[in-house]
Amino acid sequence: MTLSAPAPADPFTTLRPRLFGIAYRMLGVRADAEDVLQDAWLRWSRQDPTALQSAEAWLVTVVTRLSIDRLRALKAEREAYVGWWLPEPLVQLHDPSTGDAQHHHTPEAAAELAGELSVAFLYVLERLGPEERAAFLLRQVFDYDYPEIAAQLGKTEAACRQMVHRASERVQQSRTRFEVPRNVHHQLLQRFMLAAKSGDRNAIEALLSEDAQLIGDGGGKVPSFPKPLVGPFRIANLYWALFRRLGTQVAYRMALINGEPGLLRYVNGRIESAQALVTDGERIVAIYAVRNPDKLVGVPAVLDQR
């Protein structure tokens, strides 16, 4: 009896995590990224793979260009968005018994989503034009060479270098980058969670840097702040006031949000916000609170009481 060789894996399936990683970083919304992948798959299914020099180059080009088109179409919608626009969070739950993160509705979250993905990073990327954003991501996050990027975007190498250079400068200006060990970030977050849970205003304030800011995204669906809340006193007051009003009806759970330690907040057992917290290793410098219910559909809706 002869065993037939296993059929080679379909390149689209193999590359799907990378393609999703590109589309999600371009668009910041899971459903939009999935739509792009669906469009790309339909094109791929009509394509003769043997006619291609490189399936990866073809697929990355198609996904990048579809993402650029979709981002252009979304631009007017985002400009009319009520308040601050934050990306839809990709959430992995921490298993308290093992300390491991468990994926929730994020089959693509593994390898390709491990790198540059934080809510803070995607928030800064919103300042870039669609093509500039694509060139920057392909070079800085996915490590493609300039000849490849030029082919993917249908531009000259010189134009791509210029776009990446300009985008890098803009990203660096708008972004504070801290290299903080995961366990340090986790411990700080745990202290913050305990302080918020017990309504200890002084403890919350002590964990925030002097210029800490909180950016909330309610999308006009739930109340949020029209501008960032700045300073430890004002931010601590917000958490304290919520505790004073609702007490034990408010619960927090540790989670990985876009690959970094964050908090999920539940009110009466229902998800109310996903909060990505940026730290310099000693204090919390920024909180990005996604409260728009449309962006929380991929988050566990009911608090697991275990």
Score class of each variant (00 low, 15 high):
L74K: 05
R306Q: 06
E56K: 06
P228Q: 12
D48P: 00
A76H: 04
P8Y: 05
P96M: 02
V62H: 01
P232C: 06
P223Q: 08
R265E: 11
E131W: 02
A159I: 03
Q187G: 14
R170I: 04
Y146H: 00
S97C: 04
P226S: 14
D100M: 09
V297L: 15
L37A: 06
L42Q: 10
N292A: 15
H186K: 13
V285L: 09
K295M: 13
L296N: 10
D39I: 07
E157N: 00
L27C: 08
L86S: 08
L137Y: 03
T279P: 03
L263K: 09
R175M: 15
Q190K: 12
V82D: 12
L194Q: 14
R291K: 15
V278L: 14
S118P: 03
H165L: 10
Q102S: 10
V91G: 11
A135S: 01
N202H: 05
A23L: 04
V29K: 12
G115D: 04
A286E: 15
Y252N: 07
V184I: 14
D217Q: 10
R182N: 06
S174K: 12
E34P: 06
L117R: 08
T279W: 05
A9P: 05
T248W: 04
F192H: 13
R283F: 12
V63S: 02
V124A: 15
E34I: 14
G281M: 08
G154S: 04
S168K: 05
N202P: 00
L122G: 02
L207H: 07
S224K: 08
Y123F: 12
I287V: 15
Q92L: 11
G129V: 03
F20K: 05
A203Y: 00
A135N: 00
L137F: 02
